[in-house]
Each structure stands twice: as structure tokens, then as C-alpha cells.
Amino acid sequence: MQKFKNVFFLLACMLFSVLLLAQNGSGKSAFGNTMRSNGRIYVVVAVMLTILAGLILYMVRLDRKITKLEKEN
């Protein structure tokens, strides 16, 4: 489990650095431009991914809780 945690942490750090690199010098962030391009479909993607992330986090928490219960028994 600890190994997975480390891998996830590493991946998360890498992802955040991608966001930081996306800032260009023109004053407006490229991230904001992306979100406004293509009929703003990226906003929908972001919303759906947020919901998915919330549901998955809930599943992971349930999984952990049940594992704990199993160990208590």
C-alpha cells in the first residue's frame, strides 16, 4: 500500500508541475485559454472528471473502511 501511495504522490506532483509549466508569459494563463476554447467543452470535461474523482474517492474510502472492519474481526 505504501508503495502505491508513493507512486500516486509522485504522479500527482508531476501533474501539478504540468499546470505550472502551462503558464506562459503573455499575462493570460494558457490553462484559462484552453478552458475557453472549443465551445468550452473542457469545462464539461473538468466537471465530469471532478464528479468521477469524488465518486472514486468515496469508493476508496469505503474499501479502506471495510478492510479495517475485516481486520478487526
Binding site: 467543452i41 464539461v44 470535461v45 465530469m48 472528471l49 468521477l52 472514486i56
Partner: peptide, 11 residues
């Protein structure tokens, strides 16, 4: 795979 579905599926 679900993250891929949600992004690839929309974009």
C-alpha cells in the same frame, strides 16, 4: 480507464 473514457469520450 474511466478517466480516459471521460476525457477521450468527450474530446
Amino acid at each position: 480507464l474511466l478517466v480516459y473514457t471521460f476525457t477521450g469520450g468527450l474530446l
